Computed example of a mutant assay.
Amino acid sequence: MRSSTVVIIPTYNERENISSIVHRLRLAQPDVDVLIVDDNSPDGTGVIADSLADKDSAVSVLHRTGKEGLGAAYKHGFRLSMDRGYTTLVEMDADGSHDPEQLGSLLAASQNADVVQGSRWIQGGKVVNWPFFRRLISRVGSTYARIMLGLRVKDVTGGYRVFTAHALTTINLDTVESHGYGFQVDMLMRANQEGLRIVEVPITFVDREFGKSKITLGIVVESLFRVTLYGIKGLPSRFRGKPRPETSGDTAESHATSSP
């Protein structure tokens, strides 16, 4: 019987990491399925992913024709997973920065939320092996997005998340324009606008040991541009005193105490 939960792992040149992360995930959450979305990695990641799927019926692979960005990969994975009947959909990086052993806390929180954000920047969350400059960029980026978009979530750019199928249907993926890492901000903004309940749970984020980060200056500029554009477009409704959804943006200082 198929699980109701699937972890979606986008990959591009992650041959050194994909086997380890899938192995750890399957040990930590044996009742959860895995969908690897590979963007035609030239280093052979897709071949390794196929081998993992051949050995484990809970693992499947979606091969895409080229590198189109993180957001495009997730949207494709979301649509396929919902077509397959999954009701809980998880975002997870392939590089080991998202601890599979912490997924249980996020899934537990999803029982009473539409979106669960694994957060580095709330009480109990932390970052390991990041230089000061990377921490600064992440925290400043999240703060800027919070102010511009009127969000209460403290880790706006984090990519360790759980969505219910209801949340993704409500957001309407066809309207999400961002393809790069700005996709993460875009999704939270739309979830907040729709009045969905967003909860943050503390996580430990560990910088990758193998391979290269996909973050580039162009990706950062795209994210800042879109946040600024969305913020300016949303100013009229904020100045009119449009009420904020009562249930959105719950931060996890209080929630973390009740999460396993």
Score class of each variant (00 low, 15 high):
residue 87 T to G: 15
residue 191 A to E: 07
residue 211 G to T: 09
residue 32 V to L: 07
residue 80 L to Y: 15
residue 128 V to F: 05
residue 223 S to G: 05
residue 24 R to C: 02
residue 17 N to Y: 13
residue 33 D to S: 07
residue 99 D to N: 12
residue 32 V to P: 03
residue 5 T to P: 06
residue 11 T to C: 15
residue 229 L to P: 00
residue 148 M to A: 10
residue 196 L to I: 09
residue 7 V to W: 02
residue 223 S to A: 09
residue 201 V to G: 04
residue 96 G to K: 01
residue 195 G to V: 14
residue 209 E to M: 14
residue 77 G to T: 09
residue 36 I to N: 04
residue 2 R to C: 08
residue 21 I to C: 08
residue 153 V to S: 10
residue 211 G to S: 09
residue 43 D to K: 05
residue 120 R to M: 12
residue 65 T to A: 01
residue 193 Q to M: 09
residue 53 A to N: 00
residue 206 V to F: 11
residue 176 V to H: 08
residue 178 S to F: 06
residue 189 M to L: 12
residue 100 P to I: 01
residue 225 F to S: 03
residue 56 D to A: 00
residue 36 I to A: 02
residue 150 G to V: 08
residue 76 H to F: 11
residue 45 T to G: 06
residue 104 G to Q: 07
residue 134 R to H: 03
residue 193 Q to K: 13
residue 114 D to C: 12
residue 248 S to T: 15
residue 104 G to I: 06
residue 62 L to E: 01
residue 224 L to S: 03
residue 71 G to A: 09
residue 9 I to E: 03
residue 234 G to N: 05
residue 158 G to S: 15
residue 66 G to E: 06
residue 27 L to R: 14
residue 79 R to F: 13
residue 239 F to S: 00
residue 233 K to T: 00
residue 58 A to H: 07
residue 249 G to E: 04
residue 60 S to V: 03
residue 72 A to M: 08
residue 249 G to M: 04
residue 38 D to Y: 00
residue 43 D to H: 10
residue 144 Y to K: 02
residue 207 D to H: 09
residue 238 R to E: 00
residue 50 D to N: 09
residue 197 R to D: 02
residue 183 F to S: 05
residue 166 H to P: 12
residue 6 V to Y: 08
residue 175 T to S: 13
residue 178 S to Y: 07
residue 40 N to M: 08
residue 225 F to M: 06
residue 86 Y to A: 05
residue 211 G to P: 14
residue 43 D to G: 08
residue 209 E to P: 09
residue 60 S to L: 03
residue 136 L to P: 02
residue 247 T to Y: 13
residue 259 S to P: 11
residue 36 I to V: 08
residue 22 V to C: 10
residue 218 G to V: 04
residue 201 V to D: 01
residue 218 G to R: 02
residue 48 I to W: 10
residue 186 D to Y: 06
residue 257 T to N: 14
residue 63 H to C: 06
residue 137 I to P: 01
residue 76 H to E: 15
residue 96 G to W: 02
residue 206 V to D: 05
residue 97 S to L: 09
residue 25 L to A: 06
residue 144 Y to E: 02
residue 75 K to M: 11
residue 160 Y to E: 10
residue 185 V to R: 01
residue 24 R to D: 07
residue 245 P to Q: 03
residue 38 D to Q: 09
residue 232 I to E: 03
residue 166 H to Y: 15
residue 52 L to G: 03
residue 47 V to R: 13
residue 59 V to S: 00
residue 55 K to I: 02
residue 206 V to L: 07
residue 186 D to W: 09
residue 62 L to K: 08
residue 165 A to H: 11
residue 162 V to M: 07
residue 54 D to G: 11
